[in-house]
Write a protein that binds this DNA or RNA. Structure first.
Lengths: 221, 221
DNA sequence: CAGCGGTTGCACTCATCAGTGCAGCAACCC
DNA sequence: GGGTTGCTGCACTGATGAGTGCAACCGCTG
């Protein structure tokens, strides 16, 4: 149908992309075991045989798609950090805006979080190196990138802590993780108002723990 | 092989128990789709046909097992609350001990948390009423039971908050949820020392947020 | 034009698995 | 003893799905 261009790893790039997008949808919708390569081929408007020209295996296809998705989300989060945390105007406002946008990513990448749930379910059957790849590209990697931003904020005396990594993890715990767990990792979306409440109060708690002037914030949460 | 006794819902109770235990193991090990009723029958030392005498369906079997497991864990948590939170001697010590025991449940009920991961993966394909049943029996229910204990503690002026439910959720977030997420819901067990660190610091943060006398605890976390 | 890399569609193998049907058997109750 | 309930083992159906083989085809490049 389309022709040539020496593809990166065999096969035409547009076909490859069509396959990987269809695979993301189908794996997200059906889970790993239920997802059928016939269905993926149909949705990608591609012959099933072509899939095997690009990927050796159902398993390889799944992992490739998972890592791509993780990279996309990590990159999206990086952009959010740049936008909200590069220049701090009002710390509470900026943190809240950042965490809110971050939490909204859960509803904006539904197929990806479906994949995350599937990976959780399959984790015990995953070979160790694959699991390490996932950890390097997945959510934990996005978490790590937060620490340097907090460190810079602390350098400006707007926060106080010993360990930036731990503080970053605290912020994640108090905001993102709460949203993730209560929404079943995005499977049962929370009303926007609930998300706002969780994030707002989470950030407030974070500031009460790490802001250098405890009396500038309300005592009650 | 064994004989009679008019069972509760058809079938001999010991057979039913053997089936449900084997099902818990196999579902936990293989996930829903991969788990085969033939294997469950073998592990339960029971004819496959017998499973269908007790449960109408693979799906019913799975859900029944999941709810049983959830009830067992909820009950275990209730016992822990009674043991650690009924009489408070030293609040920080007691909370830490409770949360630590609670976190250890993750490694003590590995098949159950494997089931939880499977449910997360299947959640979008679950009928709404089933999902509600799960929410009523599963982790969220265990969470709710914490609030009254915290309320009693607050009545004794050892804690201060407006909303016991929210405070309970905070404690869960700062301790349990952190352990759950970082261990992939128990799939990749954390070293005991890491768990201790998470819990200890989580409880300290909780107390800094909710203890009535802020200056009795370290400022630094 | 010839050759090549990539795609297509289809038929096919092989395996797995949910769920059923049935005949026989074991223990219990009356 | 006779009737009942439940378990067993086995064979069977029907469906689904991973992965392969192959012949034809398409569009580019040289």
């Amino acid at each position: 149908m389309s022709g040539r261009v020496p593809a990166a790893s065999g096969g035409l790039p547009d076909k490859r992309r069509a396959i990987s997008e269809a695979a993301r949808r189908v794996f997200g919708r059906e889970g790993y075991a239920r997802a059928s390569l016939d269905v993926i081929a149909d949705e990608a408007r591609v012959a099933k045989r072509t899939i095997y020209n690009h990927y050796t295996d159902k398993e390889h296809l799944f992992l490739s798609v998972a890592v791509e998705g993780a990279d996309a989300v990590t990159e999206a989060v990086r952009v959010l950090m740049e936008r909200h945390l590069r220049k701090i105007v009002d710390l509470e406002e900026d943190l809240t805006a950042f965490c809110l946008d971050r939490a909204r990513a859960v509803t904006e990448f539904p197929e990806h979080f479906a994949l995350v749930r599937t990976i959780h379910a399959e984790v015990t059957r995953l070979p160790a190196p694959v699991l390490e790849t996932w950890m390097a590209h997945g959510p934990p990697s996005a978490h790590q990138r937060l620490a340097p931003y907090l460190q810079k904020i602390a350098d400006r005396q707007l926060l106080r802590f010993d360990d930036a990594e731990k503080a970053a993890n605290r912020l994640n715990t108090l905001t993102m993780n709460d949203v993730l767990i209560r929404s079943f990792y995005g499977a049962v979306p929370l009303p926007e108002s609930v998300v706002e409440e969780i994030i707002t109060e989470g950030v407030q708690a974070f500031l009460r723990l790490y802001a250098p002037l405890p009396d500038t914030h309300d005592e009650q949460v």
